[in-house]
């Protein structure tokens, strides 16, 4: 069964259409959602997660219509999103950041999550003392605490060094092997493409491409959206 179906989703911010009739479904295990800055990727993920209320459209997760479901209830169903700009609980330690969610959706084992995300040695450090790279990992780790079936990742390796990025991608690969499905928004295509099964490209709120990574580079529209330029940009 398809775990996620999105139908005709639209959202405007004061007249400016951030997403405009998006329709897609998650067919395989991991999908990349890409597009230029301001394409509406974050707004789309937020609408799916319930952080933003869409103006129109339906979202069906695991066979249930969740368009009007509260955010925290969606997490309970197994759907969780990370933030593009990390939002750690700065006055808590790394371990406490995770322990907060130890009772959501059955909860995960804190030590194994720390292990998977490579944060074991920082467990007792205050989150405000972490480096940016580790905060990005903590952001994913928090989401993992909720035992998600579908993980929505908003630029999980944005702003990381190459080494750090490899660490995060490895962790995501092992999750994928264990059966967690995910949608990844990222600008660093070369690093995530080996790992995803399909790609959706957005531009100006609309879907302009859906297919595999190999099909992607032959697509005229996609090239136009990126203006034939360098796609490997960080933001």
């Amino acid at each position: 069964m398809t775990i996620l179906v999105v139908e005709g989703l639209s959202k405007s911010w004061g007249g400016n259409k951030a997403i405009d009739g998006m329709t897609f479904s998650l067919e395989k295990d991991a999908m990349a959602l890409i597009g230029p800055n301001g394409a509406g990727k974050t707004t789309l993920l937020s609408s799916i997660a319930g952080i933003t209320l869409p103006d129109q459209g339906r979202i069906i997760f695991d066979g249930i219509d969740i368009t009007k479901t509260k955010i925290w209830k969606r997490v309970g169903l197994g759907l969780v999103k990370t933030f593009q700009v990390v939002r750690p609980f700065v006055s808590l330690t790394v371990r406490e950041n995770l322990e907060l969610f130890s009772r959501v959706h059955g909860g995960s084992d804190i030590d194994s999550v720390l292990e998977v995300m490579g944060l074991s040695q920082f467990g007792n450090k205050k989150a405000r003392e972490l480096s940016h790279g580790n905060l990005k990992r903590l952001e994913v780790a928090k989401a993992l605490m909720t035992n998600p079936k579908l993980l929505l990742l908003d630029e999980p390796i944005g702003g990381l060094s190459n080494n750090e990025a490899v660490g995060v991608i490895d962790a995501l690969s092992s999750l994928k092997k264990k059966g967690t499905k995910m949608i990844i928004v990222e600008h660093r295509l070369s690093e995530i493409f080996p790992f995803v099964d399909s790609v959706v490209v957005m531009d100006k709120g609309k879907k302009i491409f859906q297919g595999t990574t190999t099909e992607l580079f032959d697509d005229e529209k996609v090239r136009e959206a990126y203006m034939g330029g360098e796609t490997n940009v960080d933001s």
């Binding site: 974050t42 937020s46 952080i51 933003t52 955010i71 593009q84």
Partner: peptide, 11 residues
């Protein structure tokens, strides 16, 4: 308030 606006979180 009557001015409206749905309650939304910041992204």
């Amino acid at each position: 308030g009557i001015g409206g606006g749905k309650h939304e979180l910041q992204v």
